[in-house]
């Protein structure tokens, strides 16, 4: 927990310094061509950009620890508020992709384990190798071409059909529509998520399938599996009941790492599908040199990475009988 906190402070310092080293002036992006040097100086003073770097950091850091991330320069709104609106959209997208990737990859791993030493195993292995080589944004473009343009069955952009404007009380639209049993809205949300979720989740599925299959094959060679087989256990039950739990360790660790990569991947994927999430806003923030907003978003991403790591470690402990039942 302490190391997590220290890491987060490190992230804050690095991002703060980096943003001030890279060229680009937020004020230059805001002013109208008719602004006088006095106008510019006033603006700089207003955002504290006339102070020294260290002073700027101290002010910012104090505010951040109090939960105040400042105001976005380009959107003229509170950064915390903006993130609060956008983060849930990204979380819904990322978790949907995580669930899809783990379930799809896990299913493929179980199937290929059951098909080992049959001709079909090679087919699955070949496809798995192929899927491993395709990154998320290539999936996104391929999906847009196929499901958005050639056979336009899915909406190409956004989170919801703009014509329907249901009122939400929380920013977790998917969850909220489900809880309200509003299935029309729910299916509209899902339709908008299918392509970005596939783009983000397919690379994860490929990795999970490969790693889990290797661990499953190793576990299937253990004596306890042999004994269970002699007892008449069906092949599927052998894999699911005997091998799976002992095989998930490496997959869990890797999924944790891949999930952090995937959160990074939402930036480009949200952009491609004009999905109103945090990643999409991050790109605008960078284009506009909106320092407070960039800092806020990067810190939130950093906190997410740390949370994912903690959750992964906790799950690993829970799944290891030696640690869970000392």
């Amino acid at each position: 927990m302490l190391t997590a906190f220290v890491t987060l402070i490190g992230v804050a310092i690095v991002i703060f310094c980096l943003l001030r080293i890279v060229p680009g002036d937020p004020v230059a992006m805001m002013i109208s061509p008719s602004a006088t040097p006095a106008d510019i100086a006033a603006l700089r003073a207003r955002y504290g950009l006339d102070l020294g770097l260290f002073q700027q950091f101290v002010i910012w850091f104090k505010a951040v620890t109090a939960g105040d991330f400042g105001a976005s320069i380009s959107l003229r709104r509170d950064v915390v508020e903006l993130i609060g609106e956008r983060l849930p959209a990204t979380l819904e997208l990322a978790f949907a992709a995580l669930v899809f990737g783990v379930l799809a990859g896990g299913t493929i791993a179980v199937i290929t384990t059951l098909l080992r030493r049959t001709p079909l195993e090679a087919v699955f292995e070949f496809l798995n190798g192929l899927f491993l080589a395709v990154p998320d944004f290539v999936w996104a473009l391929a999906l847009v071409l196929v499901l958005g343009v050639a056979f336009p069955v899915l909406p190409l952009s956004g989170r919801l059909d703009p014509a329907s404007a249901p009122a939400f009380v929380t920013p977790f639209y998917l969850l909220e529509s489900l809880v309200r049993l509003d299935f029309a809205t729910f299916s509209d949300l899902v339709a908008h998520m299918v392509m970005p979720v596939l783009a983000l989740g397919l690379p994860l599925a490929a990795i999970v399938a490969r790693i889990l299959k290797e661990s499953l094959l190793e576990a299937m060679g253990q004596d306890y599996v042999l004994l269970a087989r002699l007892k008449g256990m069906s092949p599927l039950r052998l894999v699911l009941q005997e091998a799976l739990r002992n095989a998930v360790g490496p997959t869990l660790t890797l999924t944790g790492v891949q999930f952090t990569f995937m959160i990074g991947g939402t930036v480009i994927i949200e952009r491609i599908f004009a999905y109103p999430g945090l990643g999409n806003m991050a790109i605008d923030a960078v284009i506009n040199r909106d320092l407070p907003l960039i800092q806020g978003i990067v810190l939130i991403f950093g906190a997410l990475f740390i949370l994912i790591n903690i959750a992964t470690d906790a799950l690993a402990v829970l799944l290891d009988p030696r640690q869970a039942h000392g």
Binding site: Q222, L226, G232, R245, N246, P321
Partner: peptide, 24 residues
């Protein structure tokens, strides 16, 4: 063969470390 194995013929394995499923 499956009907015989594990019922009429059973096995005591060599290594008790690896012959019991660690997570059950």
């Amino acid at each position: 063969l499956r009907d015989i194995m594990g019922r009429e013929i059973t096995l005591i394995p060599q290594d008790p470390q690896t012959a019991l499923n660690p997570s059950r």
